[in-house]
Nucleic acid binder design. Structure first.
Length: 618
DNA sequence: CAACCTTTGAAGGCG
DNA sequence: CGCCTTCAAAGGTTG
C-alpha cells in the first residue's frame, strides 16, 4: 500500500523487483545519458521522468537518435513494406532495435496525479502529440505533411498504419483489407519499435467507449458499409470500459498519455487487432470532437485540454457493453426484462480488472511479434515462448516492464482506492470459473496428465506429429516433454519458425530429451507450474524448480545451469524468487534471441533470470 | 459458449 | 513468514 503515496517516487509496490534491479544496475542507454551507471531503479525512473521534462531542450536530439533514417517512400509504400518486413522479420530482430525508444515517454507523466498538469507534457510527448493528432484530425491530409511528420518523428511504421487508414477513408476498403490480411498484425506493429507503453495502449484503444456516445459520434461512418457505426461496441474495451457512475469515470492517466504518444491510438498493441480492423480508428476519427464534447466536465482532467479525452481507466469493465448490443434488440415486449437486466448490471459493480503485471505487459507487447514469427496461434504455446523470452530479457529490459507495471499498480490504486484483487475473485463473478482448474489440477495432481493434446498443438493436419496417445485421443505426453513445444517457434534460430513441430526428431520422444534439452530451448517449458512434470523431470533434477530449468536450461545450461541467476548474485535460492534473481545479464543475455537463442545464449548466458520463478514444485 | 491451456507476477488468505 | 490460490491477457482448443 505504499503506493498511496503516489508516486513520487517511491515506488511502492514492487519492491522486490526494484531491489533486485537496483543491485544489478545497468541502465538504459537513455538513462545513461544522465549517467550513473549504477543508479537504482528509483533513480532511473525519476530520471526518466526528469529527462522527459528536461528533455525539452534536447528532445530533438534524442528523437533524432531514435529516429530511423528517413525514407522517401510514401506512406502507403512504407506501410506495405513494413508489413512485408514484419512478415519476414524474425526473431533475430526482436530486440535489435533500440529496445524501447519511447520508454521514457511513459514516465513522463506525473503518475502521481491522474491528470497531467497543463503544459507538463514533455516535449517528447508533445512531439508525439503533434504526430498523432494530425493524423487523427487530418481527413485527407497531404502526404507531404504526413510524411514530414513521419520522418520527423515516427520511428515506427506502426505509426503510419493507423493514420493511413484514417487518412484514406476513400480507400477504406483497401486499408481495411490490409489490416485484415495482416490481421495478425504483428506485421504492422514492428514490435521493436513499439513503444514500451504499448502494452498500455490497449487501454487507450478502448477508452473511448462511452456508454452513450454523443450524437456526433454517431456520425462515425463505417467506411465499408457506409453505415453509421453503432456506438462503439467494438471499441468497448475488453479490459477497461468505462463505467458510468463509478470511479471509472476517472480518466486513466496513462490513457492520456497513450493517445498522445501516437502509437497507442492504433491498434498496435501486441495483443491488439483482435478486431478485424482497428477499432481505434473509428474512435480516432471522432476523437477530437469527442474530446471537446464527449465528457462532462467532471470527467475532464482539470488541466490539460487534450486530456479531455476522458479516457477511462481500462481496468473497468462495464456491463454496458452488452447493454449496447442488446440495445437494438430491445423490444417493447422484452423491455421490462432488459430493463431489469440493466438494473442488475448497473447494480453490479463494474469489474475492475487487476492491473497488469510486468510480464503481462510484456506479453501484450510481444505477443504479436511472436505470433508473427511463429506459425503458432495458440496462446498457450505463445505464452510459453513469451515466458522464455521473458527470462531471457536483460534486467534492464525487464526493469522497464516492472516499472510500467508498478506505475500501473499505482495508478490503479489511485483510481480505485478501495479496490482489492480479492474483488475479482470468483465470488465476484458468481463463482464461475477458475476454480475448476485448480481443483482439477490438484485432483490430477500427479499424473502427467493435464497436458494438452497434440491435436491442440499440431492440429488435425499434422497428425503425424501427434504422439500415439493423442492419436488415440488420450493425453499427450509428448507435448509435455517439450518436443512440440513450439519451440519451434523459437526454434527459429532466428529464422522463421517453420512450422512447429515438424522436425522428425520431434517424433521421437523421450529419449532424446536430454540432448534436445540442451540443444534447444524447447525443453519444456511447459507446464511447470502446474504440472507435475514428471516427464520433464526425467532429465532434470527432480526437485528443482522446473520452471527454471526450462527456460534457462538452454541458456544456462551452458554453465551453471540451474541457478544461473545466482551465479551472479549469489543468491540463488530458488526461494528467493523474484527478488533476487535477475539476470545479471545485461547485455549478454540479450534477449534478442531469447528464443532462438538457444544457440546463442549458452555461452553468454549469464544470467538467467529465473529468478522469477516463484513456483515450487512439489 | 464457457472453460481450458499457458506464462509470470501481484495480491490476498490461511496456517 | 511461507505457501497456496486467483486473476490479469490472449486466442485457439475442448467439451
Amino acid at each position: 500500500m505504499p503506493q498511496l503515496n503516489g508516486g513520487g517516487g517511491d515506488d511502492l509496490g514492487a519492491n522486490d523487483e526494484m531491489i533486485s534491479f537496483k543491485d544489478e544496475g545497468e541502465q538504459e542507454e537513455k538513462i545513461s545519458e544522465n549517467s550513473s551507471a549504477e543508479r537504482d531503479l528509483a533513480d532511473v525512473k525519476s530520471s526518466l521522468v526528469n529527462e522527459s521534462e528536461t528533455n525539452q531542450n534536447s528532445s530533438s536530439d534524442s528523437e533524432a537518435e531514435r529516429r530511423p533514417p528517413p525514407r522517401s517512400e510514401t506512406f502507403r509504400d512504407k506501410t506495405r513494406e513494413s508489413l512485408e518486413e514484419a512478415a519476414k522479420r524474425q526473431d533475430g530482430g526482436l530486440f535489435k532495435s533500440p529496445p524501447y525508444p519511447g520508454y521514457p515517454f511513459i514516465m513522463i507523466p506525473d503518475l502521481t496525479s491522474p491528470y497531467l498538469p497543463n503544459g507538463s507534457l514533455s516535449p517528447t510527448a508533445r512531439t508525439y502529440l503533434q504526430m498523432k493528432w494530425p493524423l487523427l484530425d487530418v481527413q485527407a491530409g497531404s502526404l507531404q505533411s504526413r510524411q514530414a511528420l513521419k520522418d520527423a518523428r515516427s520511428p515506427s511504421p506502426a505509426h503510419i498504419v493507423g493514420p493511413f487508414c484514417l487518412e484514406f477513408p476513400g480507400q477504406a476498403d483497401l486499408s481495411l483489407h490490409q489490416f485484415q490480411l495482416s490481421n495478425k498484425v504483428p506485421v504492422v506493429q514492428h514490435p521493436h519499435h513499439v513503444h514500451p507503453l504499448t502494452p498500455l495502449i490497449t487501454y487507450s484503444n478502448e477508452h473511448f467507449t462511452p456508454g452513450n456516445p454523443p450524437p456526433h459520434l454517431q456520425t462515425d461512418v463505417d467506411p465499408k458499409t457506409g453505415i453509421p457505426r453503432p456506438p462503439h461496441p467494438p471499441d468497448i474495451s475488453p479490459y477497461y470500459p468505462l463505467s458510468p457512475g463509478t470511479v471509472g469515470q476517472i480518466p486513466h492517466p496513462l490513457g492520456w498519455l497513450v493517445p498522445q504518444q501516437g502509437q497507442p491510438v492504433y491498434p498496435i498493441t501486441t495483443g491488439g487487432f483482435r478486431h478485424p480492423y482497428p477499432t481505434a480508428l473509428t474512435v480516432n476519427a471522432s476523437m477530437s470532437s469527442l474530446l471537446s464534447s464527449r465528457f462532462p466536465p467532471h470527467m475532464v482532467p482539470p488541466h490539460h485540454s487534450l486530456h479531455t479525452t476522458g479516457i477511462p481507466h481500462p481496468a473497468i469493465v462495464t456491463p454496458n457493453v452488452k447493454q449496447e448490443s442488446s440495445h437494438s434488440d430491445i423490444s417493447t415486449l422484452n423491455s421490462s426484462k432488459h430493463q431489469d437486466q440493466k438494473k442488475e448490471d448497473e447494480k453490479k459493480k463494474p469489474h475492475i480488472k487487476k492491473p497488469l503485471n510486468a510480464f503481462m505487459l510484456y506479453m501484450k507487447e510481444m505477443r504479436a511479434k511472436v505470433v508473427a514469427e511463429c506459425t503458432l496461434k495458440e496462446s498457450a504455446a505463445i505464452n510459453q515462448i513469451l515466458g522464455r523470452r521473458w527470462h531471457a530479457l536483460s534486467r534492464e529490459e525487464q526493469a522497464k516492464y516492472y516499472e510500467l507495471a508498478r506505475k500501473e499498480r499505482q495508478l490503479h490504486m489511485q483510481l480505485y482506492p478501495g479496490w482489492s484483487a480479492r474483488d475479482n475473485y470468483a465470488a465476484n463473478q458468481q463463482g464461475k470459473k477458475k476454480k475448476r482448474k485448480r481443483e482439477k489440477q490438484q485432483a490430477e495432481g500427479n499424473d502427467l496428465s493435464a497436458p494438452k493434446k497434440c491435436r491442440a498443438r499440431f492440429g488435425l493436419d499434422q497428425q503425424n506429429n501427434w504422439c500415439g496417445p493423442c492419436r488415440r485421443k488420450k493425453k499427450c505426453i509428448r507435448y509435455i516433454q517439450g518436443e512440440g513445444s513450439c519451440a519451434s517457434p523459437p526454434s527459429s534460430d532466428g529464422s522463421l519458425l517453420e512450422s512447429p513441430p515438424s522436425s522428425p526428431s520431434m517424433v521421437s520422444t523421450s529419449p532424446p530429451l536430454k540432448e534436445s534439452k540442451l540443444q534447444t530451448e524447447q525443453m519444456q517449458p511447459l507446464s511447470l507450474t502446474m504440472k507435475p512434470a514428471p516427464l520433464v523431470s526425467s532429465s532434470h533434477h527432480p526437485h528443482q524448480h522446473l520452471t527454471m530449468p526450462v527456460p534457462l536450461a538452454q541458456l544456462d545450461n551452458s554453465g551453471a545451469g540451474k541457478t544461473p541467476g545466482s551465479a551472479h548474485n549469489g543468491s540463488l535460492d530458488p526461494s528467493d524468487v523474484s527478488s533476487s534473481s535477475r539476470p545479471s545479464g545485461s547485455a549478454s543475455s540479450r534477449p534478442a534471441s531469447a528464443c532462438h537463442s538457444h544457440s546463442l545464449l549458452p555461452s553468454s548466458a549469464p544470467t538467467q533470470p529465473l529468478s522469477l520463478v516463484t513456483k515450487s514444485i512439489d
